[in-house]
């Protein structure tokens, strides 16, 4: 080509964004030392749900597929851990995570084959139906899953050395909180690379225009399938991390209403941004905990709050914040 031009590199500067993350990270690190134990545990739950939400958002925000069945992969992660404890006596958290990853890869690979041929409402309904199948299995096969009583899971061993014997709350607030934070940071870093990789761009292309994506040579079904698996694995990891916090797995986490919560977290935070689902998950978790403590009609109370939030912040918390910041910077 004869034309001489200067190269345009896309105006995304990830490094500058890390500066915004630094104070947040500082707060996350010192929190167990300054906040009440209850607050720290609540935040640990929030971080776990945030991992599930960024996994979910790889499909909604980046691939344009609204899954209403992510409870399935969260539940698969959690039940994989519970069953490993029950039948194999495994107590190592790292093995629990590996088991959860293996189980969610298996389940998402199979569910994915059926789901990725569809889009929009058909995709959503199919994912929801499949998750309900797992819910009813967990519900009915009580001799394996404990039915509605669920399965009790004792505190695991972290990194082969740290055990939760003794004061369980102290373990959860300190050792386990930092463990969750560590896994959370690793998950965020990996997901950030994925969405900014050539593969991540291809997913966004599929989201924007399936036909065109096909006509630049992208095998759309295969890429959606891979995205589906990755998405489910992150959510499965979240499920595994959730078990020690809750101490018990029950079929509730496989029910479609739990999928609805994950959808809500992403929408509340802003599914068009990378950090939106993280913020949404933490905020939703606080809202729900306070609503439950505040009134017995907490579902109604929460529902009203959520409707108001979505109507007033249609682009989510992070989307709105970004717009406000851009407006403030604008006149300069």
């Amino acid at each position: 080509m004869s034309t001489v031009t200067t190269v345009v590199i896309p105006a995304r500067s990830p490094i500058r964004r890390l500066w915004y993350a630094a104070p947040v990270l500082a707060v996350l690190l010192v929190l167990p030392w300054v906040a009440e134990q209850y607050q720290t545990i609540l935040l640990a739950y929030g971080l776990v749900m945030a991992i599930a939400a960024i996994g979910f958002n790889l499909l909604l925000g980046y691939t344009g597929l609204l899954s209403f069945g992510h409870s399935a992969y969260f539940g698969v992660g959690a039940y994989a851990v519970a069953l490993m404890v029950k039948y194999l006596g495994v107590v190592s958290m790292e093995l629990h995570l590996l088991g959860a990853i293996a189980a969610s890869v298996l389940v998402t690979a199979i569910f994915g084959i059926a789901c990725v041929r569809y889009t929009r409402i058909f995709f959503s309904i199919l994912t929801m139906a499949l998750s309900q199948v797992l819910w009813s299995l967990a519900f009915k096969f009580f001799w394996v899953t404990g039915g509605t009583d669920g399965l009790r899971v004792p505190t695991p061993t972290l990194l082969g050395v740290v055990t939760g014997k003794g004061d369980k709350t102290a373990f959860l607030v300190h050792q386990y909180y930092y463990y969750v934070l560590g896994v959370f940071l690793v998950c965020v870093a990996i997901m950030w690379v994925i969405v900014n990789s050539p593969f991540g761009r291809a997913l966004q292309a599929i989201r924007d225009n399936e036909t065109r994506a096909q006509f630049v040579g992208i095998p759309i079904w295969r890429y959606r399938w891979v995205a589906f698996m990755l998405s489910g694995v992150f959510t499965g990891v979240a499920g595994a991390l959730w078990v020690p916090l809750n101490g018990l797995t029950t079929p509730d986490i496989l029910h479609w209403t739990f999928s609805g919560k994950i959808v809500f977290m992403a929408v509340l935070g802003g599914f068009r941004t990378f950090v939106g689902p993280i913020v949404g998950a933490v905020v939703y978790n606080y809202l729900e905990s306070y609503a439950v403590g505040y009134t017995v009609y907490w579902q109604l109370f929460l529902g009203v709050i959520l409707v108001v939030l979505v109507l007033s912040l249609p682009t989510g918390i992070v989307g709105t914040a970004e717009r406000l910041m851009a407006r403030r910077r604008g006149p300069r």
Partner: peptide
């Protein structure tokens, strides 16, 4: 271009 070069399969490197 990424697609033509077979690079859209890469998911652990930064496009930019």
């Amino acid at each position: 271009i990424f697609s033509r070069q077979g690079k859209t399969r890469r998911l652990l490197s930064l496009a930019d």
